[in-house]
Amino acid sequence: MTSSPPIRLTGLAKQFAKLRAVDGLDLTVQRGEVVALLGPNGAGKSTTIDLLLGLSTPTAGTAELFGGAPRGAVVAGRVGAMLQGGALLPTTTVAESVALVAAAHRHPLPVAEAMERAGVTAFAKQKVARLSGGQLQRARFAVAIVSDPELLILDEPTAAMDVEGRRAFWTSMHELTDAGRTVVFATHYLDEADAFADRVVMMSRGRVVADGTPAEVKAVVAGRTVGVTLRAPAGDLEQRLRADPAVQHVEVRGERLRVATTDSDAVLRLLLAERADAHDIEVTARTMDDAFLALTAAETEEASR
């Protein structure tokens, strides 16, 4: 029982009318991990979260929390979640909202303690409708932690927050997760995934495209771009580059060749050894955003082939 991982997704898939939102997802999250689900809008993050919480039924595969059906973990109060659009009742105060959800749980934290931990005590008596974006997210966070869950699922928790609000939010998050809690949060902020997660799972088109520590994922995604001008046509060089597993993307525009790669040294060696006509060579580091777009583009390319 204790050895069952908080989350285990096996071949998980969800088909909507024409869209395969989640497409054969395998993912296991171990106890104490703080995992960022990173991906652009439409990558399937929210659908994955709905499936793993048992809010929707998978078309194929299974979602298990703590080795059992998601509902079991929900009923036991072992999982708390901040959903996208999971809003609070506008005419209710923050304290009432937390108390309502606490009343629905079997062994909740004292309402005052949950509010204290989430940092909402100062505006506990305010109506939800009158909260700022950041305050509302914190109130929802208080609701998510009121069952004192071992696993926290946060779907874009810092949406609608400014930079300062985001930092404050993650600070209180970290105080909570020091107690060995498992956290999975969805985000499309690359810097947030990098700064606050100890594991980053990148999703695109309903599948995992990269999974590792932030450093590893960055190494995969934040490769370099090698630009080179060739006097003669690229010929079989282009094919050889494409066949290299370290090369993610090759673009030919007239004489100019642009190669997105995780191993720019190897690409350079190949270029210099094979082509005496290579000149104007330029190696640039990509930002995570560029890399992310490249990776998603590569996926799209493959799919359309």
Binding site: L53, L55, V74, A76, G77, L83, A104
Partner: peptide, 21 residues
């Protein structure tokens, strides 16, 4: 209808509360 449209029901479905309750 209001609770459904703002997603409060989804929040409640993350508690032991049954449909009957």
């Amino acid at each position: 209808v209001n609770e459904r449209s703002i997603g409060w029901n989804r929040q409640l479905r993350l508690t032991p509360l049954t449909g009957t309750s």
